[in-house]
């Protein structure tokens, strides 16, 4: 693989309201320094895409944002959310995850009914009112564009859903918690084109009320849905800008090569 310089980077500041930012975020898996000084700002009610080759550290970075790396890796640096550094040990991670929720690459519905998949965490968080729960089930499934397909079989096991449906259920499950920020790690990579299109449609809908950060391998997908795009390379963020800019006029050689398919 061609050596690209890590010194030359092009990272913009977000002029509008921010959902969260990271400052000099570093991640270590034991001795493996998997993420170097990532400082990014994410804008509110926008979609930000994280792109880069396999192993470049996208998932590693994303998982830091709601502290899912806690038990796996050492994370240094600041993760600012609502003027607080949520990477501090004093922070209650369970509360963090209620505000910053994550959807994973492989659909992971619980081995419960569709309805319970959504209500389980809600009930544990103190929502006991039946009508409120019903309302959340319906609205979140609608938000995830799944309602019409499953409204008559809410008590069916979620494990019987197709991959695309299951992934939308996982999105609905997060949405039902009414978080602030949605993190998605390649949510469509295991799905067929039709399901992928549905998920993209869903994200466009959600964008009105949520700040979304999505990891994707699919360049077209990034250019279709994202407002901002960050390019990761071997544990470094090399470029971060508005999506049109990244795809039409990249400032960094590595980004250009990656986007044009000449990478490596």
């Amino acid at each position: 693989m061609q050596d690209y310089s890590f010194d030359k980077t092009h990272i913009i500041d977000i002029p509008i309201e921010k959902a969260m930012t990271t400052e000099n975020l570093q991640v270590f898996y034991g001795d493996n320094h998997a993420m170097h000084d990532a400082s990014l700002q994410f804008s509110r009610y926008r979609i930000t895409a994280l792109i880069g080759a396999s192993g470049s550290g996208k998932s590693t970075y994303l998982r830091c944002l709601n502290r899912m790396n806690d038990r796996i890796a050492t994370v240094k640096g600041k993760i600012m959310y609502r003027d607080m550094d949520i990477n501090s040990p004093k922070i209650n991670v369970y509360e963090v995850r209620k505000h910053i929720s994550m959807v994973f690459q492989r659909p992971n519905p619980f081995a419960k009914s569709i309805r319970e998949n959504i209500t389980f965490a809600l009930k544990r968080n103190g929502i006991k009112d039946k009508t409120e729960l019903e309302e959340r089930v319906e609205s979140s499934l609608k938000a995830a564009a799944l309602w019409d397909e499953v409204k008559d079989e809410l008590d069916k096991s979620a494990l019987a859903l197709s991959g695309g449906q299951a992934q939308r259920l996982c999105i609905a499950r997060c949405v039902a918690m009414k978080p602030d920020i949605l993190l998605l790690d390649e949510p469509a990579s295991a799905l067929d084109p039709i399901s992928t299109a549905k998920i993209e449609e869903t994200l466009q809908q959600l964008r009105k009320n949520y700040s979304i950060i999505i990891v994707t391998h699919n360049m077209q997908q990034a250019s279709r849905i994202a407002d901002y795009t960050a390019f990761f390379h071997m544990g470094h963020v090399l470029e971060y800008d508005r999506t049109e800019k990244i795809f039409t006029n990249p400032q960094i050689k590595a980004t250009e090569d990656y986007i044009s398919g000449n990478f490596g």
Partner: peptide
């Protein structure tokens, strides 16, 4: 039981 299930629970803010 797959770790995906644990991650799903934790990422929803469950203890």
């Amino acid at each position: 039981v797959s770790d995906l299930q644990r991650e799903a629970g934790l990422s929803l803010g469950l203890s």
